[in-house]
Amino acid sequence: MSKRDYYEVLGVDKSAGARDIKKAYKKLAMKYHPDRTQGDKALEDKFKEIQEAYEILMDDQKRAAYDQYGHAGVDPNRGGAGFGGGADFGDIFGDVFGDIFGGGRGRQSRARQGADLRYNLELSLEEAVRGKDVEIRVPTLVECEVCHGSGAKKGTSPTTCPTCHGNGQVQMRQGFFAVQQTCPTCSGRGKIISDPCNSCRGQGRTEKTKTLSVKIPAGVDTGDRIRLNGEGEAGEAGAPAGDLYVQVHVKQHDIFSRDGNNLYCEVPLSFTTAALGGELQVPTLDGKVKLKVSPETQTGRMFRLRGKGVKSVRNGMVGDLMCKVVVETPVNLSSKQKDLLKELDESMGGAKSKHSPKEQGFFDGVKKFFDDLTN
């Protein structure tokens, strides 16, 4: 009889991740587990099919072989990766439901992986844009150098817990299910240390401040984080260490603000340059550049300097620098300068709408508004 597609058996898509596969298996295993089906052969066979699909799809190597060659790729009789037909349902069932019932049936206790750590790193805008190598000091738990993580005094070793026989858990029956509880003797470790290490007091880990060199890539921004594999806390009893996440925060800049790969700044523009046009120097992260300003430029106008922004840390594209000009009203005028401005104003005469169209349009709108109110 031909076998059903494993993805179909579990009711998941071929692109499903491990979490979705495990979730689907939990639901089906709870429904069809032999403890619930009371010896029904058809339902027992269905559970075996579900169990087989789960074991194949949760193993990266077997899943890759199945995706490429189908059932032939995982059939031991045809040279495939093979399915462990001799496994007891309870082993997988207990492994999947261990988080609900406190542990797997007959499963050996596992030392916990070390905790992940976070380090907050503050950078200037220039450092974030250009990248740099920094040294950081991180207080953490590391593997004890004396006992090498075992927790036992040098020359001795931990012994198997006599209560749980190394499982780390003891079993209690409740209806259909074998409910697991943490072993009270060894606290779930499965081992007992009779003669603890003097350096770490039996913990297998000691406190230490590590100095690490971190390469900050160019273009990082606030919220980005850099993962350093295995630089977190050491695991218990030789288990793998956690990771260290360097969280980036970019300080506020005096001149520039950043939005994605673009930089923004405000550039003051003199009254005369705004009216007559000219050139002014604007700052960039690479130095000053000249910006040509056309005559009759109004305040708030945005000029784009292409390629003067930030190079993306993800795709290498370079943003722009957006310069917003702000026309500055002259201050501290001398009497002569004031007279010249009055003369300029008088020279415009009744042609204000020609020289200041926005001003004239605004007041025309105000007049119309009040006229409408009185009518």
Score class of each variant (00 low, 15 high):
residue 173 R to K: 13
residue 315 N to G: 05
residue 81 A to I: 10
residue 207 E to W: 03
residue 203 Q to E: 13
residue 288 K to T: 14
residue 368 K to F: 10
residue 55 E to S: 15
residue 155 G to P: 00
residue 217 P to I: 01
residue 59 D to L: 01
residue 81 A to V: 12
residue 43 L to G: 02
residue 197 C to Q: 07
residue 65 A to M: 12
residue 137 R to M: 13
residue 144 C to Q: 04
residue 242 G to V: 07
residue 256 F to K: 03
residue 345 D to M: 11
residue 100 I to C: 06
residue 9 V to E: 00
residue 48 K to Q: 09
residue 366 V to C: 11
residue 234 A to C: 08
residue 210 K to W: 12
residue 160 T to P: 02
residue 83 F to T: 08
residue 180 Q to R: 08
residue 227 R to N: 06
residue 146 V to K: 10
residue 124 S to C: 01
residue 184 P to R: 04
residue 218 A to S: 15
residue 58 M to W: 08
residue 25 Y to M: 06
residue 279 E to A: 11
residue 39 G to I: 04
residue 294 S to N: 15
residue 284 T to P: 01
residue 142 V to S: 08
residue 32 Y to I: 08
residue 232 G to P: 00
residue 22 K to F: 12
residue 200 C to A: 09
residue 356 S to F: 15
residue 315 N to C: 04
residue 252 Q to D: 11
residue 306 R to H: 10
residue 119 Y to D: 06
residue 170 V to Q: 07
residue 255 I to A: 03
residue 295 P to Q: 11
residue 312 S to D: 09
residue 357 P to C: 05
residue 60 D to P: 08
residue 302 M to N: 11
residue 254 D to L: 10
residue 281 Q to D: 15
residue 2 S to K: 10
residue 238 G to S: 03
residue 90 G to S: 14
residue 275 A to Q: 12
residue 8 E to A: 10
residue 221 D to T: 15
residue 121 L to C: 00
residue 72 A to N: 11
residue 2 S to I: 08
residue 221 D to F: 04
residue 278 G to M: 05
residue 177 F to A: 09
residue 217 P to K: 05
residue 38 Q to C: 12
residue 39 G to P: 05
residue 60 D to W: 05
residue 318 V to C: 04
residue 258 R to Q: 14
residue 336 K to A: 12
residue 237 A to D: 13
residue 336 K to M: 11
residue 81 A to H: 10
residue 104 G to K: 03
residue 331 V to M: 10
residue 231 E to D: 04
residue 115 A to D: 13
residue 83 F to M: 06
